[in-house]
């Protein structure tokens, strides 16, 4: 590498890194400052974090909202992993021509944007509300159900199952395990890393999802963190310190997942191109 191009490379990458990190730093720093200081453009950490947190608790129902977000994300993840891994396993291990057609058909659903589904889905849950209010509009179940089966995740599991050794399945059958037994006792423990990556993608998507909860969750005690942040952000006299504290809380879980499980995280993001 010539000297000039090496200077250029480092300058460019440093600039890109600074631009990428700056909004984060600003978010974290602002959560420790008073609103007035944030508007003045203060870029140094302050000592106002606890006060900000306390006034956040005073202005909004943070704890119930946090619990809703956790419930939705955890249940969606468990359900999605179960449904997609069963299907991915079924499509690959019990391969047949007919099943391959069905699989390709399911993949088509990846081309349908959620924006196109929200109106009919909202009407559908409106109808469900009349018969079963438990899973109708304004329930956590209505948020979870439509997002817990995705073609992408089925595809992801099917791709990973291609590497799964068939002999183990045969051995399990000879040992007298039922087909479901083979799946639960052998497949799930062997595919831990695939499950980890899939769990990360699903949890992130659910934790951060905005449009569908916005449509279907109407009362504020049912809200999730993104809805709470969006509402705080659209206020007329925003308290910046408080809002940034809320954003830090919402970002913390995903940031932690990223730093602790970086390898699985990247594997999950790239799942489809393996």
């Amino acid at each position: 590498m010539s000297k000039l191009s090496s200077i250029f490379t480092y300058t460019f990458l440093s600039l890109a890194s600074i631009v990428s990190i700056f909004p984060f730093l600003w978010m974290v720093v602002s959560s420790t400052n008073k609103s007035v200081d944030v508007t003045k453009g203060r870029l140094l950490p302050g000592s106002h974090l606890l006060e900000n947190f306390r006034s956040l608790l005073d202005t909004v129902d943070l704890i119930p909202v946090l619990i809703n977000s956790i419930k939705i994300a955890v249940i969606t993840t468990l359900l999605a992993l179960l449904i997609a891994s069963l299907a991915g396993y079924g499509f690959e291990i019990f391969k047949s021509k007919m099943k391959d057609y069905v699989f390709s058909f399911l993949l088509l659903s990846m081309m349908i944007p959620f924006a196109a589904l929200m109106v009919p889905l909202f009407r559908m849950f409106g109808t469900i509300s009349e018969a079963a209010p438990m899973i109708g509009i304004d329930t956590l179940a209505a948020v979870i159900l439509p997002t817990s089966a995705t073609a992408f995740l089925i595809f992801f599991f099917r791709q990973s199952t291609k590497m799964f050794p068939r002999e183990i399945i045969e051995a399990g059958r000879i040992d007298g395990l039922s087909e479901l037994g083979v799946f639960i006792r052998i497949y799930i423990p062997t595919m831990k890393t695939t499950y980890a990556a899939a769990a990360i993608i699903t949890f992130m998507a659910s934790w951060n999802s905005y449009l569908w909860p916005l449509v279907v969750l109407q009362s504020s005690e049912k809200h999730t963190l993104p809805l709470l942040i969006s509402n705080l952000g659209s206020g007329y006299s925003p308290d910046f310190g408080v809002i940034m504290t809320a954003i830090v809380i919402a970002t913390l879980p995903t940031a932690l997942i990223f730093f602790i499980l970086q390898k699985h995280f990247v594997a999950g993001m790239m799942g489809s191109v393996k």
Binding site: G90, S96, K99, S109, L117, P120, A149
Partner: peptide
């Protein structure tokens, strides 16, 4: 064996049809 295979995938197929394909028809 075909029945067993289908029983693994049926849940996913039903869910995706209910929450993606049917709404598109309805739309």
């Amino acid at each position: 064996s075909a029945t067993i295979g289908w029983s693994f995938v049926v849940l996913a197929v039903v869910m995706i049809c209910t929450f993606t394909f049917y709404p598109m028809v309805h739309a």
